[in-house]
Structure formats: C-alpha cells, structure tokens
C-alpha cells in the first residue's frame, strides 16, 4: 500500500499545487483523482513517481521505480521509433534483447489490438491508437503501480469508453494499483474502486468516495440510478469550484 503522510507540494510562484494530504491507497486498488485544473492531481502522480520533490510530509511506498509505469496525458512516443520499438523501450533500456522484448509485448499488443501497426511510425497513428501504444508500453513491464494522467483526454467519447473498458479488463488480469487523474466525472467514477475529489488551490481532498459497483463495469452501468446519483453528487461538489 501507498501511504501519504501530511504530503504537500506547493509551487512558490503561484501558490498552487497540492495541499496537505494524508491517506492510504491499498495495493490493487483503482483510485481516481477528480477535481478542477491546478488542484494538484497531476502533482500527486508526479510525487508518487519521484518526478517532483515534496514540500512537506512523506510518501511511504513499497514500489520501486521499475515496478511503476506512467501513462502521460500525451502519448509521449519517440517519433523516430516504430510502434514496436516504442512499446519495448522500457525493456530494451533494461538491456533486454529487442526480439525477446517483442515476444513479451505480444499479449498486450493483441489485447490492445495494435498488431497491424507495429512497424508504423507514431505520426501515422490516430490519437486513440497512440494512446493504445502508450498503454502497451506501460503494461509490458507488468507494473505493480500504474499512474495514469488523463490518459484519454485527447480522445473522442466512443474511443474513451472503449479504451476505458479495455483498461478495466487488463486491470482485472494484472491487478496493479492504479492512480488515475481525469476530468471526466462519469468516466472516473465508472472505472474506479474509489475516488478522491480535490478542491481549492492548493488542492485538498474534500471527498473520499468508495465505488462499490462490482468487478465488471459494463457500459450500461453508466445509466444506473445509484451510479448517476453519485456522479451528480460529485458534480455538485465540483460545480462551485469551477
């Protein structure tokens, strides 16, 4: 489990960032971080990833760097490499032979349905495909902690839904701990076990919402009355803020 103890990160120039947060993320839990822009959601991910230094407090995490994967808001693919080379990058950087790495990538490539594009360059792909490649790259190391920063932000609604469902299926297989930032309340609540709602600048957690919706999350769940009332409650909470 990851424990945040009085953790904060304030950016001196703006005073924004992440206000003090103290909570525990259980292993294998999917936690969605919701809130307005600038409330410190991405900062929290970066703190967990070690890409930022905290202003105060501490993070107790059992995860080593090689056990984490970060999916950025943009696909962050190397434009001079093929899709295949981008996917196996985490392994080739560890000294794994490219052929061996490609074998390891095969199941993820199949699950994410990108076999046909393995020899393409990133600029030949659509936004949705790029995100799939980015996800495959994140999953090839079978991470124990998956950090997702608005991974579907640039995508159309049907593709967002499709990728969300695929990700949920992958999560059921691997059971990594997931911390996901999103601006879509419906999408965030639909996919997660628990949602942390942030408000303010610097942001603080104002609601810690469990989402007991079962393991399977069919699309029809988004029309469920109980689910919709939770979405509405979160929406009303965030409405005053935006």
């Amino acid at each position: 489990m990851i424990e945040f103890k009085g953790l904060s990160k304030i950016f001196p120039q703006t005073g924004a960032g992440l206000g003090t947060i103290s909570t525990v993320i259980e292993s294998g839990e999917w936690v969605t971080l919701l809130g307005p822009s600038g409330c410190g959601k991405t900062t929290l991910l970066k703190l967990v990833a070690g890409l930022e230094d905290e202003t105060s407090g501490e993070i107790r995490s059992p995860f080593q760097k090689n056990e984490m994967s970060f999916v950025f808001q943009e696909s962050a693919l190397l434009p001079w490499k093929t899709v295949a080379q981008n996917i196996v990058l985490p392994l080739t950087l560890r000294g794994v032979d490219e052929k061996v790495a490609l074998e390891k990538a095969r199941p993820w490539v199949q699950k994410l349905r990108i076999e046909r594009f393995m020899q393409s360059k990133p600029h030949e792909l659509s936004g949705g495909l790029k995100m799939r490649v980015s996800l495959a790259r994140a999953l090839i190391t079978e991470p124990k902690l998956l950090l997702l920063d608005e991974p579907f932000a640039a995508l159309d609604e049907p593709i967002r839904i499709e990728l969300g469902m695929e990700l949920r299926e992958l999560w059921k297989t691997l059971r990594p701990t997931i911390l996901m930032v999103t601006h879509s309340i419906t999408e965030g609540l639909w996919l997660c076990d628990r949602a942390l709602i942030f408000q303010g600048q610097p942001g603080k957690v104002v609601l810690d919402q469990k989402m007991d919706l079962g393991m399977d999350r069919p699309l029809s769940l988004r029309g469920d009355a109980h689910f919709l009332s939770t979405v509405e409650a979160c929406f009303n909470l965030l409405k005053g803020e935006s």
Binding site: K46, A49, G50, L51, K65, N66, M68, S69, F70, F72, E74, A76, L78, W80, L89, P90, L93
Partner: peptide
C-alpha cells in the same frame, strides 16, 4: 521535450541512455 525526459526518468534510464537514446536523436 520535457515529457519525453520524464518518460526516460520513469523508465529509470541512465544519464548516458537518456543522452544517446533520447537527447541525440531528438
């Protein structure tokens, strides 16, 4: 691109790997 630099940090790339596999080709 800072995003790609963050990616290489996340992938625990050594400074030499970052130089020759990211900075130089970019």
């Amino acid at each position: 691109d800072p995003l790609l630099l963050n990616l290489f940090k996340m992938l625990d790339a050594s400074p030499l790997q970052t130089l020759f596999r990211l900075r130089v080709p970019a």
